[in-house]
């Protein structure tokens, strides 16, 4: 597989049109400066290439923020309940940076490690990822600390690397990638051994994630460390909502007098309600315990249990934190602690 081609930037619009004509929904980064997010692409000209990172990740394509699973018709205590079958429209997720593409392995591990998930799996199967290498990063980026990189191919079906303002190197990585390139083969020309390396951003590594994973169990009891890091945490959950790998969810019923739905929606371990018992007992009563859970889950429990890291270093949690907590910095600080 792994064939490389060149596509011109001015040809992308035609490629998108061929994808749409081929039955794909194209989702890509669109919007104004400061508010760029993954949304259905209505016009190829609206797709953005100049941002470091979208505000939110594209995980909603596979794992929507809010998804109805059952529908109810209610009449007093009489209920008709029915499944809402999973929807999985063929989708191209265009312009996912390598960190976002890498996050699919984490999501997939969570949703499939023990049993199949009828809502997640078909969406993932029907999604083609056209990744976009990073030519610039910012101080929040730390992909290289967690096994990724600005030109990492993991998770992408096609990876585009901007070589200059005019053309992209297209690495065709999977059968799915071959299919979307095959929609418009005339737009792709030979790459003749062109390398992407010179075009990639330089992201310095801040810590070694394997060392952190090995060390975290011994840091768990150091309550002062977790407290100090999280003293300013508001428990707002923004970090979890923008995170490409966070997958904890809630299941709730919503109803009016005659109809109802059972939904699943995103949730966050940062909320006190997340673990609160009916008796009012809470296993993670303090915000510092919830911060510790967030770090432990991503860097210790998931690697140990599911063999995937729960962080891809996209930096969104830190960019969106209202009190400027910084996961990359905090984990780097943990890595420095002598145990």
């Amino acid at each position: 597989m792994n064939e490389s081609k060149i596509i011109l930037k001015k040809s992308l619009g035609e490629w998108f049109n061929m994808m749409t004509a081929g039955g794909y929904r194209v989702v890509g980064p669109v919007g104004q400066d400061g508010q760029i997010d993954f949304e259905p692409v209505t016009s190829p000209d609206a797709v953005r290439f100049d941002h470091v990172q979208t505000n939110n990740s594209g995980k909603w394509v596979m794992f929507p923020r809010y998804e109805a699973m059952m529908r109810f018709r209610l009449s007093g205590k009489e209920v008709q309940a029915g499944e809402i079958p999973p929807q999985a429209p063929p989708t191209v997720l265009f312009g996912a940076h390598p960190c976002d593409a890498a996050s699919l392995a984490t999501l997939n591990a969570v949703f499939t490690w023990d049993s199949s998930d009828a809502y997640f799996e078909p969406k993932l199967a029907n999604t083609t990822i056209i990744g976009l290498s990073c030519t610039k990063g910012d101080s929040y980026c730390f992909c290289t600390s967690v096994g990724g990189g600005p030109g990492d191919t993991r998770g992408s079906d096609v990876l585009l690397t901007p070589l200059d303002g005019e053309k992209f190197l297209a690495e065709i990585l999977t059968e799915k990638g071959k299919s979307v390139v095959g929609l418009a083969p005339q737009l792709f020309s030979a790459a003749d051994g062109t390398s992407k390396e010179a075009a990639l951003a330089k992201i310095p590594a801040r810590f070694n994630h394997r060392d952190v994973t090995a060390k975290l169990p011994s840091l768990f009891p150091k309550e002062d460390v977790w407290k100090e890091q999280s003293l300013r945490c508001l428990g707002c959950g923004a970090c979890a909502y923008v995170c490409p790998t966070c997958s904890c969810f809630d299941i709730q019923d919503e109803r009016d007098r005659y109809t109802g739905v059972r939904i699943r929606c995103w949730d966050s371990c940062g909320f006190g309600l997340f673990t609160l018992h009916a008796s009012n007992h809470n296993p993670r009563h303090k915000q510092s315990e919830r911060w510790r859970q967030r770090v432990m889950h991503k860097f210790s429990y998931q690697p140990e249990r599911l063999n995937v890291l729960g962080c891809v270093g996209c930096g969104r949690c830190s960019r969106s934190c209202p009190v400027d907590m910084n996961l990359g910095e905090h984990v780097a600080a943990l890595a420095e602690i002598k145990v």
Binding site: D114, C248, D250, I251, D267, F274, T275, H297, Y301, E304
Partner: peptide, 23 residues
């Protein structure tokens, strides 16, 4: 008796250490 939602090791809320109480 940890709080649970999915019951099948996905929703994350009964996670204690590397254990899912539901699984």
């Amino acid at each position: 008796e940890n709080r649970m939602k999915c019951g099948v090791g996905k929703c994350g809320r009964c996670n204690v250490g590397k254990v899912y109480v539901c699984k």
